[in-house]
């Protein structure tokens, strides 16, 4: 059976900035979660999710030694911290935004 879950149920995360890109790490809580996010949290899925706030592409890396995915969401910080008009000019809260993303998993 398929079930919708939020990533926060199986992951933790942290985000920061580099220039105009939001740099987000997503960590699986255990082996099962790692298999799920590897499969379901694709570059395309994350790009679609951040589309409303990002002007550029999304890059994705797998980091198996810490069971994590690394995303760079380009063009998400209003031009970069010192020229951004955003209150969260460093994208510190985008990790939480990713944790709120829903995926469909097989039971």
């Amino acid at each position: 059976m398929a079930r919708r879950i939020r990533l926060i149920e199986i992951c933790h995360a942290r985000s920061g900035d580099k220039g105009d890109a939001s740099d987000i790490s997503l960590f699986a809580n255990d082996d099962a979660a790692w298999e799920i996010i590897r499969k379901h949290v694709t570059r395309e899925r994350v790009a679609e999710y951040f589309k409303p706030v990002a002007t550029g592409p999304v890059e994705r890396w797998e980091v198996p030694n810490v069971q994590a995915l690394k995303f760079l969401v380009h063009g998400a910080l209003g031009g970069g911290a010192p020229r951004s008009l955003r209150s969260d000019n460093l994208g510190k809260t985008f990790a939480a935004a990713l944790l709120r993303m829903e995926i469909t998993v097989e039971e």
Binding site: H12, D17, D23, S25
Partner: peptide, 16 residues
């Protein structure tokens, strides 16, 4: 492990 992992990948871009 959680506190260390979160900082380990913080703002590093390409992990390789």
């Amino acid at each position: 492990l959680k506190s260390v992992k979160e900082q380990f990948l913080y703002e590093i871009h390409d992990p390789t």
